[in-house]
Design a protein around this nucleic acid. Sequence first.
DNA 1: GTTGTTCTCAACCAATCGGTTGAGAAGGAA
DNA 2: TTCCTTCTCAACCGATTGGTTGAGAACAAC
Lengths: 126, 126
Amino acid sequence: MAEDQLSRAFTALADPTRRDIVARLSLGDATPGQLAEPFAMSLQAVSKHLKVLEEAGLISRTRDAQRRPCHLETAVLDEMTAWVDRYRRNAEERFRRLDAVLAALAEDEEQDQEETAQQDEGVASS
Amino acid sequence: MAEDQLSRAFTALADPTRRDIVARLSLGDATPGQLAEPFAMSLQAVSKHLKVLEEAGLISRTRDAQRRPCHLETAVLDEMTAWVDRYRRNAEERFRRLDAVLAALAEDEEQDQEETAQQDEGVASS
DNA sequence: GTTGTTCTCAACCAATCGGTTGAGAAGGAA
DNA sequence: TTCCTTCTCAACCGATTGGTTGAGAACAAC
């Protein structure tokens, strides 16, 4: 996926109104008028939001007389989760390995302490 | 998760520089100086990006003398995939059901056509 | 102490964003 | 045709964004 496409997708979902629209569209296609209804803003503002979502590839629009029904496209949503998951996995795998190393070190430490304790029998610790 | 926290997270990842930083940090902690090195911009600019990432909860910062090592936090990444996946699943489940309905309709249609063909034997179609 | 390194803060600037209003295109209904 | 509905486009406005430079805080090293 092109870099700026991913930027557009994240930018699109950064706005709460646009996330609400995506949530609504996940339940079924809807016209701009229907989508604008729950919001305290003009139809033109919603129309702008739909343009942003369309340019991000998150929705597509068909035609039905004057109406322009909007349809949620899932491909870009897939790309977004793929990106986020990739680096989340990177980090978590790294933490897992680090934990293993720390656990091994802790075991060595325990071993060392036991040996030291044997050597230092009867000597007060500082 | 708070609504504006999610907005901050998506806003943070909307910028390519910040996505690069997250990718880099997924491989291991790093200081602002190390993170700024590959970019053709000032350290101050990178410092601002780190502030955005920190306020989104995507990174945390500790202290090591003058250095402020950055650490990737995966919790918010989880929240982001959870959000995206929720509505992707909604939509895909809906498409799956729609496909089933259409398949059923197509079968009925076939049935109807067979019956009509029997009734209309020898009659030219209009 | 002074010096050098690392990093953040403050002020500024051009560009973008999210809303507004007004105009008009596209198409069904009277 | 004329009206009404639905929607987009264009221009504008204030707030935010992503960069800059300059100043200075915090700390190690000398």
